[in-house]
């Protein structure tokens, strides 16, 4: 297992200084909160907002973009937390994450068709995706642990192809939607946001907080962080790393499942919807620092904003284009992410 870990370090390292996994998983250890960095990022966000105001000349447009961006950004954060957790602990770049989300979308759709309230579907989708994650990790990925990064990438790619196209095969390509009973527009300052959007945001934040508590305050979370830091060491003190790998992957998948149910009322449900979220989640994960769970949440908010404000900067272009521009800049200028600290 040293090889992929080394690769992870080499990849995350900047100028030969390697970042250590514990820092990536637990960035704010109380020792030093990176205030300067937070201030710089906040300043950049303010600058971006001001520029958007200058570009559009309309306050309402900017406030609307910010509201929409932050609200969806919370969901991006939840998805990316799962992805970054998997990367931090298993060193796997999980291309199947979005397809798990798509699966949860269709599951939610099916359950609401059966008369269940969309948010009650969480009680089904989260455990279901957790179990699926366990099965996939134990059944398929466990055989590739410790192999080169490309192997695992290709396997998760294969899984995503299978899931996405199985959905296409069984449900067809017709877009579907889930209606939230009692959904309405809620005014925020001068802007309007749908209640479903606000609830998705709140739900994502609550689940993200629960995940954070799980990682920080429980024995299981401590074990997960220990494996992320040094799996051989963790094994030596009696942690069954195979169980931790499986549980971590399942937790990450459950995040995607929860996010899928939360966004079901917001998006058109198609087999390819998941891959859009997957792309954004990758951007968020790199932005937040691979393996950095809190960074993923902050990164989600930043990318949500970037997507919406980008629509103002580059009218007529897809909002995703601005996401990629941010992505490429971050990859080149700060590949260790905004919060990944060098040791």
């Amino acid at each position: 297992m040293t090889t992929p870990a080394d690769q992870g370090h080499a990849a995350a390292g900047s100028g030969g200084v390697a970042t250590l996994d514990p820092d990536e998983v637990r960035p704010t250890r109380g020792r030093t909160v990176p205030w300067l960095r937070i201030a710089v990022i906040a300043a950049l966000v303010v600058l971006a907002v001001v520029l958007a105001y200058v570009r559009s000349g309309s306050g309402v447009v900017v406030v609307q973009a910010m509201a929409t961006g932050v609200l969806i950004g919370g969901v991006y954060g939840l998805i990316a937390m799962g992805l970054t957790l998997i990367f931090g602990v298993l060193d796997i770049v999980n291309f199947a994450h979005g397809s798990f989300l798509a699966l949860a979308l269709f599951l939610t759709f099916g359950l609401t068709q059966a008369g269940l309230h969309p948010y009650l579907a969480l009680a089904v989708s989260v455990p279901a995706m957790f179990v699926l994650g366990l099965l996939v990790q134990r059944g398929i990925l466990a055989g590739a642990m410790g192999k080169p990064l490309e192997n695992q990438l290709l396997i998760t790619l294969g899984i995503s192809l299978i899931i996405e196209n199985a959905l296409l095969l069984f449900f067809g390509g017709n877009p579907r939607s889930v209606a939230l009973p009692g959904d309405r527009g809620v005014p925020i300052f001068e802007a309007v946001a749908n209640l479903s959007r606000i609830l998705a945001f709140v739900g994502a934040l609550i689940l993200a907080g629960l995940l954070y508590l799980l990682l920080q305050r429980t024995r299981l979370g401590t074990a997960i962080r220990a494996v992320a830091a040094n799996d051989t060491g963790a094994q030596l003190v009696g942690i069954d790393t195979r169980v931790i790998y499986a549980v971590t992957f399942a937790l990450g998948t459950a995040c995607a499942g929860a996010a899928g149910t939360l966004v079901a009322p917001l998006v058109t449900i198609e087999p390819t919807t998941g891959s859009l979220f997957n792309i954004v989640a990758f951007v968020v994960v790199v932005l937040g620092g691979m393996g950095n769970v809190v960074g993923a949440l902050v990164g989600g908010l930043v990318i949500g904003l970037a997507e919406q404000l980008g629509g103002i900067y580059l009218p007529g272009q897809s909002p995703l284009l601005s996401v990629f521009i941010v992505f490429v800049l971050v990859l080149f200028l700060r590949p260790q992410g905004l919060f990944g600290r060098s040791a």
Partner: peptide
Amino acid sequence: LRYKLRGAYFALATFAFAEMLRLW
């Protein structure tokens, strides 16, 4: 190469450029 992208980062960067071309 200038910014020393390796492994997953390199793969993701190539992916991002292809997607940017598609969106453009």
